[in-house]
Every structure is written in C-alpha cells, then in structure tokens.
C-alpha cells in the first residue's frame, strides 16, 4: 500500500467517524451557518503571516533555525500570548476583539513559522556564500518560493489550532470555533466538510513535498 493510499484510508475513517458521530443534542436546532464574517480576518491573518514569516526567514537565512532568541519567542504556548494580551489590554478599550486576536495570532505563530522555514533552507556554506551577498539573497528567495506552497498547506491545520485557542480565550468567533461548534451540535455534514478540507490539505502538501524532493 502506497503512502498516499494509507493516508487516504485514515482520512476515510475520519470521514466515516464524522458522518457517524455518536450522540445527539438535547434540543435539536438547525446547524449554525458558516461564519463568513470570519473569513476576511482569517485571510488577513494568514496572508500577513505567510508574507512576514518568509520575509523573516529570507533576512535571517538558515542560521535563524538555531538562534536562541527565536527559540525563546517560539517556546510559550498560544494561551500564554492570549493571557498576556488579556492582562495588558486596558479595560477602558473594551474587549480586545479581532485586532487583539490578530496581534496575538501573529506573535504566537510568527517565530515558529520563521524557524520552520529556516530549518528547511539548505546550508549556505561554502556556496552560495562564496559568491557574495547578492547570490545568497537570490538563492534564499528561490528556496522560499519553492517552499511556500508546501509550507502553507502543511501548516494551515497548526494555524487553525492556534486560532481556535485564541478565539476561545479572547471570545472572538472564527473558523476554529466553527470546527468545534459543529462537533458540539453534531452537525455531521458540516464536520465532514471540515474533514474533507483537511484531507485535501494533507494530499496537497504531500504532492508538493514530492515535487520539491
């Protein structure tokens, strides 16, 4: 059985589990609609992250992966950033809302993503370092361009988890909360949609992985 087939079997089982999710809610209600209002802020957050992280990795190069300062920023869990934001947010400004969520998301995810990219970059010694700064920058740019697709598809579920934790702590409804709500209200069709989307991401990251290799 090939890797892809074995993986698809797992996703198929996940789909079957979603469609046959046991239990029912005490008071049957229509499943909630998809939170379209959260799509814009999510695209903004993911877009900013997917531009900032490669930029940081491009500036820092593969050496960034072993930098202690970045590891220290990456180490605290998402809930700590949300907690700090809640603690330091002036009460007079009202709840942190989407702006606070965006800041917490970027602070929580950026160091880890920059390090992920830096770790995946090839060593630069002796070449292209010997060819000068311009060559180094050019090679980094090309590498990041090849990595970008694989990186975003592989990391989207991790970002979804981060946003779910932040949404719950900061009280902002979003895509992460939607995934959780569909389990709570036993919306089997909606949950199956989520599983299919995650399976598609996995499949895509595998195909891109093979292309890069």
């Amino acid at each position: 059985m090939s890797r892809i087939t074995a993986g698809l079997v797992v996703w198929g089982l996940g789909l079957a589990l979603a469609l046959g999710l046991p239990g029912s809610v005490w008071r049957q209600a229509a499943p909630p609609g998809f939170p379209w209002a959260a799509v814009g802020p999510t695209i903004l957050a993911v877009g900013t992250l997917s531009l900032l992280a490669p930029l940081v990795a491009w500036r820092g190069g593969p050496g960034l992966a072993s930098r202690r300062s970045l590891a220290l920023l990456e180490a605290p869990p998402d809930l700590l950033w949300a907690g700090l934001l809640l603690a330091l947010w002036p009460a007079a400004w009202g709840p942190p809302g989407l702006g606070g969520w965006l800041v917490a998301f970027l602070v929580a995810a950026l160091p880890g993503e920059a390090r992920w990219l830096a770790q995946a970059m090839p060593a630069e010694h002796p070449f292209p370092q010997a060819w000068g700064r311009a060559a180094v920058n050019r090679v980094r740019w090309l590498v990041l361009l090849r990595l970008w697709g694989r990186w975003t598809t592989a990391r989207l579920p991790v970002w979804l988890t981060a946003t779910l934790v932040l949404e719950r702590i900061l009280g902002v409804p979003g895509l992460g909360t939607d995934w959780m709500t569909r389990v709570a209200v036993r919306d089997r069709a909606g949950l199956a949609g989520w599983i299919l989307a995650l399976a598609l991401l996995w499949l895509l990251s595998h195909r891109l992985d093979r292309e890069v290799a």
């Binding site: 890797r3 087939t5 074995a6 993986g7 079997v9 797992v10 579920p157 399976a199 996995w202 990251s205």
Partner: peptide, 9 residues
C-alpha cells in the same frame, strides 16, 4: 508511514 503521516497532519 502514510497512516502516521495522515495522523500527524
């Protein structure tokens, strides 16, 4: 390995 890869995602 395909199973573990899917579980890891």
């Amino acid at each position: 390995v395909g199973v573990w890869s899917a579980l890891r995602s």
